[in-house]
Design a protein around this nucleic acid. Structure first.
Lengths: 159, 159
DNA sequence: GTCAGTGCAAACTTTTTGCAACTAC
DNA sequence: GTAGTTGCAAAAAGTTTGCACTGAC
């Protein structure tokens, strides 16, 4: 099943490259394969090291940046922008999910909610053709809620 | 009315600073004032120049970064992360809106939709206390849709 | 008077760019 | 053969940090 997805996205890349007059380089396929091996989010640096360590295929960071742009355009990867650096994740056969981001510790938790998904998809947009979306809910995770409460109590005590 | 908002946020900042044992520096109030003068999004660089030009108050970039962190914590400013640099906007009395981002030209359009807003706010979250959220809808704006269509036609012709 | 806060410059991180070498076509 | 790609290193862009000085308390 997983292998099936990899084969499919490989074909999608081939089609995309052909249609747009780009070359089918081994680097591009190796990067795509690695991305569809990683589960969840990753940034360029993580991808760079994964390629070398697990993927046994060395590519430069420049090539990673170039290739990611192609893959974004081919709808094979999506980009997120929480934290300092861009985060990416595979786009094909990856259920759309929402993100809860803790403003205290930066932890990102994924969230599935059918009603919410439905509401967003059904929203009518003017002069715009939507392809995908990202919902980020900011707040404080349970762990940090307790940490914050402790801190506040201490502040009061020390006064 | 606008002045009223500025007065209110100034008071909110004073309260926040007092509660957390921070000093009431003129820089902090000048920055807050400038932020509530700007309509819409801004990044640090824009804010830096606005302070000098319109606000006639010179502050260093370091202070801007420091102060923004305080204002985020005080819920007086919210941060967005589209594009390369962080974008900010005032938080108080600023209706929550959603964003449509064109993946071709990068243009960001704001969107108001009551149903959508309701659906998001009413979503129950586990182990998480939400404070605010951001919805980014990616796609192609009408202008770029036409540009893309033209390009495609040309490609076919040239083959 | 003291220490939090500021300005400055240097450092750091992430991303982009220019160019020579390479290779898919 | 040639133009699209790659790797490298330098540059750019955005943000953080160290430190001396300043000013809010």
């Amino acid at each position: 099943m997983e292998e099936n997805i990899k084969e499919t996205v490989k074909q999608m890349l081939t089609e995309y490259l052909q249609k747009n007059g780009h070359r089918k380089t081994p680097e591009r396929y190796a990067i795509l394969d690695m991305i569809y091996t990683i589960k969840g989010h990753f940034d360029i640096d993580t991808l760079y090291h994964s390629m070398e360590d697990e993927g046994q295929f060395r590519v430069s960071r420049a090539t990673l940046y170039n290739t990611i742009i192609l893959l974004l355009d081919a709808n094979l990867v999506i980009r997120h922008q929480f934290g300092n650096s861009s985060q990416y994740e595979r786009a094909y056969k990856n259920e759309t999910h929402h993100h809860m981001i803790c403003t205290e510790c930066g932890k990102v938790t994924e969230l599935e909610d059918e009603n919410l998904k439905k509401a967003i998809v059904e929203t009518k947009l003017k002069k715009f053709t939507a392809s995908h979306y990202s919902l980020y809910i900011y707040g404080v995770c349970s762990k940090c809620t307790w940490a914050k409460r402790r801190k506040k109590t201490n502040n009061i005590k020390s006064k």
